[in-house]
């Protein structure tokens, strides 16, 4: 009989490789493979003088993009992931957050590590 092989060992290019059973390692602090900061058309800008640390921005942010720096006693914003929904601006107790157009360079535009 013919001794044809039914399949040779496959070679899958790296960018298409899927780990066994599609099990991937869990992220630790951030999922850098899904940067969403470039979704924004507007971004929240905080006035630290006015901020009373009500933490509404922290607790209501669906993208976990506000955190309290306990040592500095001030809120820290994560530009890489904030999608610009502005829930924080709407929910702030003391109106210390303002929406700024993402293309407004005066407030400083956010540059991502690489374009997505």
């Amino acid at each position: 009989m013919s001794k044809k092989k039914y399949c040779e060992k496959f070679s899958v290019p790296e960018h298409l490789t899927v780990p066994l059973g599609a099990c991937i390692p869990a992220p630790v602090k951030e999922q850098r493979a899904m940067i969403t900061g470039n979704w924004r058309t507007e971004r929240p800008v905080i006035d630290h003088e006015k901020c009373n640390l009500c933490l509404n921005c922290f607790i209501f942010c669906p993208d976990s993009s506000w955190h309290l720096d306990e040592e500095e006693e001030k809120m820290v914003w994560n530009a890489d992931f904030c999608k610009g929904c502005l829930l924080c601006v709407a929910e702030c107790d003391v109106d210390c957050l303002d929406a700024e157009n993402e293309l407004n360079f005066k407030g400083g535009v956010v540059r991502l590590d690489k374009p997505y």
């Binding site: 933490l55 993208d63 994560n78 890489d80």
Partner: peptide, 24 residues
């Protein structure tokens, strides 16, 4: 709210919509 852990176990970096209730 002050006692809510600052650590995130549902970390930022997901494709849910802006202002997503289920993500929150």
């Amino acid at each position: 709210v002050r006692r809510v852990p600052q650590e995130e176990y549902y970390v930022p970096g997901h494709r849910t919509c802006q202002g997503c209730g289920p993500a929150l």
